[in-house]
């Protein structure tokens, strides 16, 4: 299973990298989202896969599952998911404002500062 997951992670990363290398702003945003997914899944895979081993303790005080998933990566990923949301929202708004200001979604038109644009 790990091999399949690793390949999936790789595909997600490759797609994300490819998309952030585009010139179109919108595609870069999609790429960011893909990278965020890829990283979460990467952490999850690296943290160790366990079937049905929810890290919960029963009422009697012992672990419910004999082999339980590592809770530490899970806590990490949980925060990563939420932070990822914040980052994506920020990036979205940033790009939106850039688009409103520059009136173009071609990143190559963002290479110069305002001043230089006036002179050119």
């Amino acid at each position: 299973m790990e091999v399949v997951m690793a390949i999936t992670v790789g595909v997600l990363y490759a797609a994300g990298f490819y998309m952030i290398l585009r010139r179109s702003l919108v595609k870069v945003i999609i790429g960011l989202a893909l990278l965020s997914h890829a990283s979460n899944l990467f952490l999850f895979t690296v943290g160790g896969l366990t079937r049905n081993g929810t890290p919960l303790i029963s009422e009697s005080g012992v672990m419910e599952a004999e082999v339980y998933a590592d809770p530490l990566p899970q806590a990490l990923i949980l925060t990563a998911i939420v932070i990822g949301f914040g980052v994506q929202a920020f990036a979205l708004v940033l790009f939106k404002r850039v688009f409103q200001t520059v009136k173009s979604d071609d990143l190559d038109e963002l290479t110069t500062t305002e001043q230089a644009e006036v002179t050119s």
């Binding site: 790990e2 990363y13 797609a15 895979t45 896969l49």
Partner: peptide, 18 residues
């Protein structure tokens, strides 16, 4: 470039989980 980088991440994931 993206495929190479993605493939690298796959290998890292595999190595790490091994």
């Amino acid at each position: 470039v993206a495929i190479i980088a993605g493939g690298l991440m796959s290998v890292i994931a595999l190595v790490a989980s091994m």
